[in-house]
Design a binder for these strands. Structure first.
Ligand SMILES: [Mn+2]
Ligand SMILES: [Mn+2]
Ligand SMILES: [Mn+2]
Ligand SMILES: [Mn+2]
Lengths: 219, 219
DNA sequence: ATATATTTTTAGATTAGTCTAAAAATATTT
DNA sequence: AAATATTTTTAGACTAATCTAAAAATATAT
């Protein structure tokens, strides 16, 4: 039906349109897919032909209902496969993204739904990202990060906003995995770094770069 | 590294070379991949460039060590995924082949080996085909079919030589699944059809077309 | 409001895989 | 051994996705 490439464009447009209110720009898509603006224009025309995106020259692009449904189902696949790899095949959370990038394109409603059932309908993937349900509904959590917490406030780590191997590895090395309880003990005004207590046990120093990418649920 | 297309050619050449002693013909590959002979020639040249096949114009083609290793690893993937789909996701044996055709191209040694472990190192796929081990060794069973059995001989169904949905569905409808014990009660000379007893319970009539595709282990 | 910078689109080329039609090589008949 | 049939290869064209370079549109600065 749609090529891998088309699906990747739809997914990229979906993710970018979460961040802005108006149309997604050609350049933004190009950057996100590591391709050139001219290639993006070509593909947008094709997706527009297929009624998967709304497009007016120079005006940016948005997904149609049809396009959005496809994007969400691919994201559902991606996150379910990540859960599978971590929960069933003993992969670490920093190893699964690239494989899921391939697996997400295996197109079978039955496969996706059986996998979902086999995994017992997980709500979140290994990085805390919400898994769209069968009907495409996504329950996204609040966008509070550790950097938003004030002195002595505390919360639970529920996700990450940055998915690079190096960040995930670093977090694991200081025991900052999903579910960890965290409390702010000190905030340095100068560089916005923090001292935080992890699980009421050890205390570590965290840069602003690191804290602003940790999604927290106040507790 | 190699495209899906290249991998499919390697797999096709591997399977065809099991059946003959000398080189695989261009036409045979074309038929097996449902493409044209001219396309095959083009691809063979490319695979030859990459040292994955041995090729002399007009002489047919054979796999190099490198090409064979790739082919076998794809077959390993294919069969492991089929086991996964049947054993873990409750698919029927006639529903898994097409999905496995896609999944087999997900290229990750770690994924394959972890999947193998998760499935507890299965020796055969849902159609009785042997699963190559980590090192590419394949233990193929004897090539005796039900059609080879004489009157009053008996055996266990261990595989099928034909993988079409219609054939697999038919077998299931008469309870002829893997592991079934089968005994020849009558052979009709005229059309080589047979009467056979299944699991010492019911007796059914089977055409030669059906019996020659059932792989049997004498018992 | 003009000039300058940035973004987006177009024009034209490239690569992988495919196809049809024709030519070349090999195999089969007579 | 020559004629005929079959198989394989080549030549040339097509599509999807990409790129570079240049043109057109839009945004920003003076
Ligand atoms: Mn991911
Ligand atoms: Mn994820
Ligand atoms: Mn199969
Ligand atoms: Mn099989």
């Amino acid at each position: 039906m749609n090529s891998f490439t088309e699906e990747n464009y739809l997914k990229a447009i979906f993710k970018l349109s979460q961040k802005t209110n108006d149309g997604v720009s050609t350049n933004a898509i190009a950057e996100s897919l590591e391709t050139k603006a001219s290639s993006v224009t070509d593909m947008i025309k094709k997706l527009s032909e297929k009624k998967l995106v709304n497009y007016k020259k120079y005006q940016g692009v948005s997904l149609t209902k049809k396009g959005k449904d496809i994007a969400v189902s691919i994201i559902r696949n991606h996150r379910l496969w990540e859960v599978f790899l971590v929960e069933k095949l003993n992969f670490k959370w920093d190893e699964v993204h690239d494989l899921a990038e391939d697996l997400e394109h295996i197109n079978s409603k039955k496969l996706t739904n059986q996998l979902d059932a086999f995994l017992e309908y997980p709500k979140y993937d290994p990085h805390g990202d919400p898994i769209p349900d069968k009907d495409g509904n996504i329950h996204r959590h609040q966008d509070i990060t550790l950097a938003d917490l004030k002195l002595n406030e505390q919360g639970i780590v529920v996700g990450v906003k940055e998915h690079s191997k190096s960040y995930l590895n670093y977090l694991e090395s200081i025991n900052l995995v999903l579910g960890t309880e965290i409390k702010v003990k000190e905030v340095v005004d100068f560089d916005r770094s923090m001292s935080v207590t992890i699980n009421k046990e050890n205390t570590v120093n965290i840069s602003h770069q690191a804290s602003k990418n940790l999604i927290i649920k106040r507790s």
